[in-house]
């Protein structure tokens, strides 16, 4: 049994059937990529995992718990972190604060009025955040305002914010979208390191280079349905995949 189990998920937007009986079984510790042409329903599917969208039918189970009908912040509290297509960070705050906030969220839960102690007195959280920044090579910038970072560094910071929570499952929505080649390669290296820590990752991606260098397993989504699920080596030659992507032409 996998850590994330998706069974018979359907989602309609008016007349459009965005997801049609999607089944997925994501194994703990694996990197699972979901690919597919534009409009295949990848983002819709991801949004069903994090509480942003509610499927019409079907179930999404994480670690034995249903993720349906609960608020995104609760889903995060049980161990699911998410990276956005455009890095979502606290742009007005310093890098250190950016990483301390999720660390506080893990320790104190979704709400706590901790209004008397100064941030500087929270040594443990501070050290933890500093260590995480150091691991991702950003400790020198700890006092910089996050909004000033480059696109690649923003992604790096966002990953630091997710990792400091020690998530069981990390969801990545096109982690290299809009990045220059060098930034993309750095990000892939970083994600490989993260994968080595044993964190389960689900990656949605357009860029085949990224997918094939990262994923243990790949699910191909087309018109709201998983048409193939296999290891990367078998995906490229699969005629169904070629048809989905290129309308029948051969790769």
């Amino acid at each position: 049994m996998g850590i994330l189990e998706v069974k018979g998920v359907n989602k309609r937007f008016g007349g459009l059937k965005a997801l049609n009986d999607v089944n997925l079984d994501i194994q703990e510790g694996s990197v699972h990529a979901i690919i597919g042409p534009n409009g295949a329903g990848k983002s819709t599917l991801l949004n069903c995992f994090v509480g942003r969208l509610e499927p019409d039918t079907g179930s999404v189970m994480f670690d034995g718990q249903s993720l349906l009908g609960i608020q995104p912040y609760r889903i995060n509290q049980i161990g699911v972190s998410r990276v956005f297509q455009t890095p979502e960070i606290f742009a007005d705050l310093k890098l250190l604060e950016n990483v301390m906030i999720p660390a506080f969220a893990r320790r104190d839960g979704s709400f706590k009025v901790n209004g008397w102690k100064s941030v500087g007195e929270e040594r443990e959280i501070r050290d933890e955040a500093m260590t995480m920044l150091a691991e991702l090579g950003m400790e020198a910038k700890a006092d910089h305002v996050a909004g000033q970072l480059s696109r690649g560094d923003k992604r790096r910071l966002e990953l630091a914010m997710c990792l400091v929570q020690k998530p069981k499952l990390l969801l990545l929505d096109e982690p290299t979208a809009g990045m220059a080649r060098a930034d993309t390669n750095n990000t892939i290296d970083l994600l490989k390191q993260i994968a080595k820590r044993g964190i389960t990752m689900v990656v949605i991606e357009h860029d085949m280079h990224v997918v094939f260098s990262l994923a243990d397993r790949i699910s191909v989504l087309a018109q709201g349905t998983v048409i193939v699920e296999d290891v990367p080596g078998n995906i490229k030659g699969n005629p169904k995949v070629q048809e989905a992507y290129l309308g029948g032409a051969h790769l």
Binding site: Q71, Y73, I89, A91, M100, S110, K112, V113
Partner: peptide, 28 residues
């Protein structure tokens, strides 16, 4: 001053900065 410098104050600044990120960081 105490509130401004506290973790609670940082959370309030986070509200101003990015509520979306807060929501997906386990914070209500």
């Amino acid at each position: 001053i105490r509130i401004f410098r506290s973790p609670f104050g940082v959370m309030l600044k986070a509200v101003k900065s990015n509520q979306q990120r807060m929501l997906y960081t386990g914070l209500n």
